[in-house]
Design a protein around this nucleic acid. Sequence first.
DNA 1: TATATATCGGACTGAGACAGTCCTATATGG
DNA 2: CCATATAGGACTGTCTCAGTCCGATATATA
Lengths: 162, 162
Amino acid sequence: MLRISKLTDYGILLAVELGELQEPTSVRALSLRTGVPQATASKVLQSLARAGIARSRRGATGGYCLTRPSREIPMLEVLTALEGPLAVTDCVEEGACEHEEGCGTRVSWQRVNEAVARALANVSLADMAPPTPLVALTRSAAHAARLRQGADLSLLAPAEHA
Amino acid sequence: MLRISKLTDYGILLAVELGELQEPTSVRALSLRTGVPQATASKVLQSLARAGIARSRRGATGGYCLTRPSREIPMLEVLTALEGPLAVTDCVEEGACEHEEGCGTRVSWQRVNEAVARALANVSLADMAPPTPLVALTRSAAHAARLRQGADLSLLAPAEHA
DNA sequence: TATATATCGGACTGAGACAGTCCTATATGG
DNA sequence: CCATATAGGACTGTCTCAGTCCGATATATA
């Protein structure tokens, strides 16, 4: 569990796709490439645009593109854009829980929440891109090496628990 | 988002409570202490028992107790008992996604999933207990110090992202 | 200016998960 | 035998999720 919604999954798929295409791309084209239904893709992309992750351009030859290189966009930002602020429990947010003061687990939850957030902040959209050999070969050797090693993701793995 | 369910929250509340009371305690008593409705508490505790986290005892003077000291029970185990295996996305599990092969984000999701899992494996049930000064004072100085420092939770926080 | 092409964004809907309750069966201690 | 517990399946109302539809608005081109 602790699952993200399908919409969010789609959003990441779309954002990754945008990261690989440099030029503005229509929702229709993105829909065909990702398999996400067009109407749904439109909705998700709007959320990304509102959050400042993507930029939209209306009218003929319009479409979407990212506002920054995908390597500079942390996954946490994308998740927040699509599902609201990260909150493992209600009580992590101020005033959401009636037992706010009496409950001793609240502080602990906030720490857990922070740990998860930090993990997601350390993964960029670029890290989610397909690590297929074919793609790796067409890019720099350094980039290919990064892909094979799973990029910075290894940083997220602390030592085994005591 | 990435929220756990309320039932799971209750389960942790109940388990923490069980960790502080040593002797077998009835659902009724646990319900009164935690504020979780009795019927609901019963259900949640059954799940914990099935997962080998708690032990039940029927009949008069029956009730629940933990099978191990709360410090030896990782949060990941409790979450898994109550919501099933951790899976940030469907595609993390085998055969759940029809695009399994074509999708390049799958491997990345599995790494994210592992990172979150490892974070949760490093927090024990005992770490979730109330860190109130009063409680701290009644225990060993070493334990109190642990509480003030947020226990092992600091281990979960890797360096700031690059 | 007319028209084709896009996004914008609110309204609506069916499906499914979630939270919670109820009832009966079963086990234990006195 | 009886009072007290848990076991666990069935059931229900509520809410969120995933997805669609449609009218409004913006842009490029002829």
